[in-house]
Design a protein around this nucleic acid. Structure first.
Lengths: 334, 334
DNA sequence: TTGAAAGCGTTACCAC
DNA sequence: GTGGTAACGCTTTCAA
């Protein structure tokens, strides 16, 4: 392994001078700089990030903590994060959380020394104690798809998204509308599904349309469970004419159920999802699009900005939502 | 920041002793160990990975270099890698390569000091010079979905997979069979598509079935381009009765083309893909399944094993393939 | 403008 | 068994 000492010897200077060249210090004679650069080239020298990190107290690393990498939406967010970090010369450490234990462990790890210069947390909300821990440890954190007053966040307006879905269905003439979403989750604290529902319901309330309780179904997130829920809905004495699913993954399950029961979409049943993941386009699913890739990029940028001005106040960014009309919603004529 | 010195003071011992406790050295009196453990708890001390790494020359980090994170298959491989690494106490650094420049840059970075204890490379084949560089730098590398004599690899038998696809189509009575794949790629050196084709062709040759040259179409990888290729195929004077696509993503494009042209699948056209990514199940696509998740896990295990026995010879593992029959292939009765 | 030297937080060796 | 101390490779003062 070639170290700064080798370079210094080769160039016939002290290691301090090599370090100065490395760090573009202005106080190096041009001739000296050239000699050192030459030695660096010849030896193919690269400074040890470990040694630099130890000395500077910085790692040039960002940790991203992501639950359920199996969810396509998480991957799309990551795809926004990576280039932004890479361009800034940062390295991305990926931590998957699949159990509540891992969630807690990874949150705790964020306050430990010399782990990373900053943290990105996807879809997980740290507790008050955890946030307090971040503060006292000086850990810089940006949340994606989660919200906390004291932390910078990039969020989706789930409530407005739910309203948009409801208004779309209402405009198409639907009055018997149902909801398929995640069951309340105490393990990870995901809230998007319930927030989407509350927006959905409020828009229906505003229009004077009641959502019967038997039309509201929840289960653990997943296509298969959503399919089962939709099958129940479709076998009701008076089945709904439209279903809002809290995510595209669940909407695909609903479509499967409709196909299995030979319920024609959108003639007999309208289905609208949320996210606009890649498969949604393929399936022709009408959905509420949220800019997943952009959310990752923006979060990375917020974090990078905070790195240069750590005392800046937290920023809360909300990304715009779009209704994407495809082929799974249609007019209901009574 | 609490360091080993703080712990030593608190416990009333020297830092050497704390280090011994940390590293489970047997030569520590039980009473001393307890005192030190207590101090560690009280101070919530965690050793600096940077300092440990610098001293030991190890980072406890693995770098995964992955082209086109947009491909679902790459993500599924990663999902196999992560838990395996995590369980072994290793951290995963993710590097996305989206351009040939990034490919070269990331390959070069692997020989640099103190970056990682080992490297996982997905779908990219290092050049002879690069491999030589790994050897002289002592870089441990495991390839996934790529092959090199001197490196441990986890591969798919693409040739056999192509044969399996051909045999399935042959058994169903198809004789006019076409291929939709990636165009020869000189930028990244992906070879799976052409290898799948060569297996496909050899099985057809064995059966005395000719593949007309107009039935062989390639374009840059992607659903849209595959769709265009399939549209060309379907508008031929004598269109094929079956199409083998080099990946599920491309097969989905073929299905789109068929739908657009009102060609009924599988009655008028059989379609078979390769990979069995998650969407394939949803689309009811018949495909050659390769164990993506398992490939990641196995590669991580090979790398971890090599870490403990660095001088062990390279291992080459081939994972089994399966024909998954769903609803896009059917009998062709002339 | 430059060299020498003092750390950064560990580990591991050498005495005691 | 245990404490001191010399590295690990770098950055950054302090003198010169």
């Amino acid at each position: 392994m070639v170290t700064i000492v080798d370079v210094a010897k080769r160039a016939g200077v002290g290691i301090g001078t090599v370090s100065r060249v490395l760090n573009q210090s202005p106080s190096v004679a041009e001739a000296t700089r050239a000699k050192v650069q030459a030695a660096i080239q010849e030896l193919n020298y690269h400074p040890s990030p470990l040694a630099q990190g130890l000395k500077r107290g910085l790692t040039h690393t960002i940790v991203a903590t992501v639950p359920f990498l199996t969810h396509p939406s998480a991957v799309e967010r990551l795809q926004g994060v990576l280039p932004a970090l890479n361009d800034a010369g940062y390295t991305l450490v990926l931590r998957a959380v699949e159990t509540p234990q891992q969630r807690d462990e990874h949150m705790a790890a964020m306050t430990r020394p010399h782990r990373a210069d900053g943290d990105l947390i996807v879809s997980l909300t740290p507790s008050a104690e955890e946030v307090q821990g971040f503060r006292s440890a000086g850990t810089l954190v940006v949340l994606i798809d989660a919200w906390h007053e004291q932390l910078s966040c990039v969020v989706t307006d789930d409530i407005e998204g739910g309203r948009m879905a409801a208004r779309h269905l209402l405009e198409l003439g639907h009055r018997n509308v149902a909801f398929v979403g995640d069951e309340p989750d105490n393990a990870f604290g995901f809230v998007s599904s319930s927030r989407r529902f509350s927006g959905f319901k409020s828009a229906l309330d505003d229009a004077g349309v009641e959502v019967r309780s038997e039309y509201i179904r929840t289960a653990p997130h997943g296509r298969a469970s959503a399919r089962a829920l939709a099958a129940e809905l479709l076998s009701l004495d008076e089945p709904p004419t439209a279903i809002f699913a809290a995510s595209d993954t669940q909407a695909l399950g609903v479509l499967e159920a409709a196909a299995a029961e030979s319920v024609e979409v959108p003639r007999e049943l309208s289905v609208i999802g949320f996210d606009d993941i890649e498969i949604a386009g393929y399936a022709g699913l009408t959905t509420i699009r949220q800019p997943l890739n952009a959310s990752g990029r923006l979060a990375a940028e917020l974090l990078l900005a905070a790195l240069s001005i750590p005392e800046a106040p937290a920023r809360h960014e909300t990304l715009p939502l779009d209704l994407v009309e495809r082929n799974t919603t249609g007019r209901h004529d009574p």
